[in-house]
C-alpha cells in the first residue's frame, strides 16, 4: 500500500516531494505542492498554517490514511493514526469495543489497554456507550488513551488537544511532555502558546509549500504575519 510501513526500529519519517491534489468538481485543487521534511526521533514539531492550508491533509498523508498524489512518505518509526476529531473509531461500537479492536490490530493485550483507557479517560460507564454519542472532548480522551496505550514512536496530533477541558489538557501535557520525552510529535495547532512552549521545530504551511524553521519563534512570527 504505502512505500514503507515498517513499524519497528527507531528512525525517522521522511516526506519527499509530497504532492496532494483533490478533485473539486472539474478543477483540481492543489493542497500540497512539493512538501519536503523529516521528523527525527524526539522531535516536537509544531505545524502552523491558516485554515485550509493543508495541515490536516499533511497529517493524514503521514499517517497513511490517504495517499499522496505523487512523492513519497517513508516511515522508519512507528507512527500513530492521526488523532483528531474524526476517524479511527467505529461509531456504532462502544468505547470498550473500540479499545478491543485497537488492541487486537496493534497486538496489545486487551486487559492492559482496558485498564489504561479507564484510568486515562475517566469516562467510567460512558465507555459502554456507542462512540457516536460521545462529545468531541470525550472522543479526544478516548483517542489519546488508545494511542498512548499502544506506545507509538511518533504521534500525529491534529488540533484535538484544544477541545479537552483543563484536566484533559494537563493529562496530555503530562503524558507527552513529561513522561514520553523520547517520542516524536507532529502537532497541528493554532495555539501558539502550546507550540512555543513545547516544540523544538515548527513548520509553516502556505500555498502548498512547507517551510521548516529550527527556531520556533521565527515560525510563529511568520505565521502571525500570514
Amino acid at each position: 500500500m504505502s512505500p514503507s510501513t515498517s513499524n519497528s526500529g527507531s528512525g525517522m519519517i521522511h516526506c519527499r516531494n509530497v504532492h496532494k491534489t483533490y478533485r473539486a468538481g472539474k478543477t483540481d485543487k492543489i493542497v500540497l505542492d512539493g512538501v519536503d521534511f523529516s521528523i527525527n526521533p524526539r522531535d516536537r514539531i509544531g505545524l502552523l498554517g491558516r485554515n485550509g492550508a493543508g495541515k490536516s491533509t499533511l497529517i493524514r498523508l503521514i499517517g497513511g490514511v490517504e495517499m499522496p498524489t505523487s512523492g513519497k512518505i517513508i516511515r522508519r518509526m512507528s507512527c500513530s493514526w492521526p488523532l483528531g476529531f474524526t476517524g479511527g473509531f467505529q461509531g456504532s461500537l462502544t468505547g470498550y469495543d473500540n479499545a478491543r479492536f485497537i488492541s487486537r490490530i496493534y497486538d496489545k493485550p486487551y486487559a492492559e489497554m482496558r485498564a489504561f483507557v479507564e484510568e486515562f479517560t475517566e469516562l467510567g460507564s460512558q465507555l459502554q456507550m456507542p462512540v457516536k454519542r460521545y462529545s468531541s472532548g470525550m472522543r479526544a480522551r478516548l483517542a489519546f488513551a488508545l494511542s498512548l496505550a499502544i506506545e507509538f514512536e511518533c504521534y500525529l496530533i491534529d488540533e484535538v488537544i484544544m477541545v479537552g477541558d483543563k484536566n484533559f489538557q494537563d493529562k496530555c501535557k503530562d503524558e507527552f511532555f513529561e513522561k514520553r520525552t523520547d517520542r516524536a510529535l507532529l502537532l497541528a495547532s493554532h495555539s501558539l502558546s502550546t507550540v512555543r512552549r513545547y516544540c523544538n521545530r515548527a513548520i509553516v504551511l502556505k500555498n502548498g509549500n512547507a517551510t521548516v524553521y529550527e527556531d520556533v519563534n521565527e515560525a510563529i512570527s511568520v505565521y502571525e504575519a500570514l
Binding site: 500500500m1 490514511v65 479511527g88 461509531g91
Partner: peptide, 11 residues
C-alpha cells in the same frame, strides 16, 4: 468504513 482506514493495517 473509512474511519477504519486510519489504521494502516486495515486494507
Amino acid at each position: 468504513n473509512g474511519s477504519l482506514l486510519y489504521h494502516r493495517q486495515v486494507k
